[in-house]
């Protein structure tokens, strides 16, 4: 990643539901668990979370339903008012924004896609997509142009005049995506965007999403409860339980080195070979120059399976995209991962 300041930076944020939560939080003894808080009559939607999202990064937040992932992302956009802590978006404390500034920030910087689409049923596809532009007062002609452009981008050309109920689920979500992109946001929130779709459509939409992200390179916070989806998309994964982030790391690290028993259990069933990349297994060179054909750093162990089995060398050089060797990979270690004995 790059070195500039993070786009979203959350420090010790809390979101409690209940009567007068601020007062409760102020008087609460630190280190109280989720169940203890519940016994006091409060629900900890988000519990002491600190997290940073860098520019152009795709952070996937994972967890079971009720783990607080949707609540967390709604705190980032201040759809929920947090109970405690601090959230900076582009260096600005969003809790200090007044109503107009908040509206302005959403109008210029943020886009969001919802699980059940959140389309307005009385508006056509075109009017739904143009909705955020209309709200910020863009003139009819300009917003039509822009809306048609995004509709084309998500592949809904020719459906502009349809009403949401006349579209399939996948198409409706394309409208949701187009709407969230209409204002060209820097930050893109996606709350389980594909969960309501059939498995086949989901796969197709994920590909579509990756294609869009390749073109647009937004900063993305993506929520899912589907681990496979997280692995396919994420730069980093944050795993949540009971409102707290259990671990936030790259997919490889989560799989290879789970920090808590919960994460370990979560990743147990995952076929590690599909997740772990050669780059992660590469050990520093320490001045030596390894011999022979290098393997690409971006390849997963599974992709290298045939080579690993047929190979006779004990260590393999690993090279990045430019062909520079970045380290060596122990063949036995990689084989252990492939065979599930890691």
């Amino acid at each position: 990643m790059n070195s500039e300041a993070p786009v979203i930076s959350a420090r010790n944020i809390w979101k409690l539901f209940g009567a007068d939560p601020e007062k409760y939080l102020a008087s609460m003894t630190p280190g109280r668990g989720f169940d203890e808080i519940r016994a006091d009559g409060y629900i900890a939607g988000v519990k002491d979370v600190s997290i940073k999202v860098s520019r152009g990064e795709m952070l996937v937040i994972m967890g079971l339903s009720g783990s607080g992932k949707s609540t967390l992302v709604r705190c980032f956009s201040r759809l929920h008012e947090i109970t405690g802590g601090e959230i900076l978006v582009d260096g600005q404390d969003i809790m200090k924004l007044n109503e107009n500034d908040l509206i302005e920030m959403r109008r210029s910087k943020m886009g969001m896609v919802f699980q059940s689409f959140g389309l307005l049923p009385h508006r056509t596809v075109l009017e739904n997509v143009a909705f955020p532009l209309e709200m910020r007062g863009q003139d009819r002609h300009a917003r039509r142009e822009r809306a048609l452009e995004v509709i084309k981008l998500v592949g809904l050309e020719g459906r502009e005049e349809y009403f949401p109920r006349e579209l399939s689920g996948g198409q409706q979500q394309r409208v949701g995506i187009a709407r969230s992109l209409a204002i060209e946001p820097d930050i893109w929130f996606l709350d389980e965007p594909f969960s309501a779709l059939d498995p086949l459509i989901r796969r197709e939409m994920q590909d579509e999403f990756l294609r869009l992200q390749d073109m647009l390179s937004k900063t993305i916070v993506f929520i899912t409860h589907d681990f496979d989806e997280a692995l396919r998309l994420a730069d980093r994964i944050a795993i949540m339980k009971d409102g707290a982030v259990e671990q936030c790391d790259t997919p490889d690290k989560i799989v290879l080195d789970p920090q808590t028993p919960y994460v370990a259990k979560f990743t147990e069933e995952i076929e590690k070979a599909r997740v772990v990349h050669a780059s992660v297994l590469a050990k520093p060179l320490n001045g030596t120059t390894p011999e022979g054909e290098p393997v690409p750093a971006g390849a997963t162990v599974l992709q290298l399976a045939r080579q690993l089995v047929n190979e006779s060398r004990t260590t393999l050089p690993v090279a990045d995209k430019d062909g520079t060797v970045i380290g060596t990979m122990n063949r036995q270690e990689a084989l252990d991962i492939l065979l599930g004995e890691g």
Partner: peptide, 29 residues
């Protein structure tokens, strides 16, 4: 009115009046 429609309205940067006029009342049709 479904909460997601409300949130979609807010994320689109609706003012209070715009929320009522364009999101709430049409959704409660």
């Amino acid at each position: 009115v479904p909460p997601e429609a409300v949130e979609a309205g807010k994320m689109s940067g609706c003012t209070r009046w715009q929320m009522l006029r364009h999101v709430y009342i049409p959704s409660a049709r």
